[in-house]
């Protein structure tokens, strides 16, 4: 019990004093996950919109696969990206393994199906309401997709933030492709895993607190955006 309270007070001291090591790890985590989510959203939102409004044979199968991919185990994604990026792999020549870029790729791969599947659902619900009107006005597929992306923007922001939460909290993939190299690819989750096994509880706990605070704030932000949008835009 003493150990825990001592670790906790040391963790709080690290946070309050903005410990350099802790700050660097947090900053890298945020950068990696933000970049991954931006890339994932750029791919997944248009994909989700098109999937929501187009009809083609096999569409249901594509949706089922996409939904299944939401549950991709991070370690498996890490392993696959590792194989692609390793020296002998197809992308080995770029020397990306154990760099932040590799971690961004891994998280983007993890998050893209999540954003695509959730946005497909959101946009399809809106499409049901808008379909007749937009067809009546002569909007083509791309115009309709654009309109729906804009009109569901608040709900989609929640989706994207959920993607960010997933990316920031994930440990398996970044551990494998990043390698948890001190000062280079060490992010919050991998550092927590390492420091815990090493017995450096204060740093692990401090990072854990920061991570939880970030995740909670991101979700509060998402909720706030939704409430405000409902009040002002209906």
């Amino acid at each position: 019990m003493n150990d825990i309270s001592a670790a906790l007070s040391e963790a709080l001291r690290l946070i309050v004093s903005v410990d350099a090591q802790l700050a660097q790890i947090v900053w890298l985590s945020v950068q990696v996950s933000l970049a991954a989510v931006v890339i994932a959203a750029a791919i997944a939102l248009p994909l989700g919109a098109l999937l929501a409004i187009t009809r083609f044979p096999g569409r249901q199968a594509v949706i089922a696969v996409l939904n299944a991919l939401m549950g991709l185990p991070p370690v498996v994604v890490g392993l696959l990206i590792y194989l692609m990026l390793s020296r002998a792999g197809p992308l080995g020549q770029f020397g990306l393994l154990f760099t932040p870029t590799a971690m961004i790729i891994a998280q983007a791969v993890l998050v893209t199906p999540i954003i695509a599947a959730l946005s497909r659902q959101v946009i399809e619900d809106a499409w049901r309401e808008y379909e007749d009107q937009l067809n009546s006005l002569g909007a083509g597929t791309f115009a309709a997709a654009q309109t729906l992306l804009w009109d569901t923007r608040f709900a989609l922001m929640t989706v994207v933030l959920a993607g960010f939460g997933r990316a920031a909290a994930e440990v398996g993939a970044v551990m494998i492709v990043g390698g948890n190299i001190d000062g280079v690819t060490r992010v919050m989750t991998t550092a927590i895993a390492l420091e815990t096994s090493k017995g450096d509880l204060p740093l692990a706990l401090g990072l854990g607190i920061v991570l939880v605070v970030i995740i909670i704030n991101v979700n509060l932000l998402a909720h706030g955006v939704k409430l405000t949008a409902q009040r002002y835009h209906g």
Partner: peptide
């Protein structure tokens, strides 16, 4: 073709 428009029972308002 163009030259037609339709108004529905429940107006569909775009979020703008």
């Amino acid at each position: 073709a163009r030259g037609q428009a339709m108004v529905f029972q429940r107006p569909v308002m775009l979020r703008r």
